[in-house]
Amino acid sequence: MSDSHLNVQLSPLGDSAVMLRLGSTITEETHRRVMALIARLEARPFAGLLECVPSFAAIAVHYDPFLVKKSRIGTELQHTTIYDTVCSRIQSLLSMEQLSNGSRKSRTVEIPVCYGEELGPDLDFVAEHNGLAEEEVIAIHARGTYLVYMIGFAPGFPYLGGMSGRIAAPRLQTPRTIIPQGSVGIAGEQTGVYPIATPGGWQLIGRTPLQLFQPQASIPSLLSPGDSVRFKPISREQYELYREGV
């Protein structure tokens, strides 16, 4: 992958972060470039790099200005700003020959979902809205393969792409004050899973017994950007068994 292929625009995000923008639309191609660049940044972290936060078409690189300043060498000592030093360190990573691309294999994570009834109170609305039977909504939702573009909004909350427009549904007029942990919902042409209980306006079609967020784990989120997700329908009985840890 050449530098021109990455085509990255750098701009300051305050005095302790730089935003790397790779596009302005949500496409799998842009997503792959974001993931390739973040792999490169994390494989060769420059002195002072704190963390990289990917989104649909950009990466925020947070840095410690003092560590960057203290670690300046050679021509970096002539830079007017610490930001200039950070940019030149990122540019040198961008211009490098392609690093091995196999640093992180894309995973497919299967998420069991008990659809409908009290765990998915809006399934009937989504079906009626699209002129489908409830079973058809479940079949369409469970047939898809979804790409985790980014995690945001709440701990472990995946922004998933790839839902069929045939089961799209508008948000609730009045958001619920509490959406239970594990709820699987639809908003517009997006689908998602709520890792923690939070207020929200999505149409709820089911619930997973899986824990998507566990702060005690070293990697607290079940899903990471770049993962593929599939939903697997389970019965209420299987849902309860999962919950009991069987």
Binding site: L13, G14, S16, A17, M19, R21, S24, T25, I26, V53, P54, S55, F56, A57, A58, I59, A60, H62, M150, G152, F153, Y159
Partner: peptide, 10 residues
């Protein structure tokens, strides 16, 4: 605009 990362003070 697409959702993207924020910083303290944004």
């Amino acid at each position: 605009l697409l959702s993207e990362a924020v910083a303290v003070g944004t």
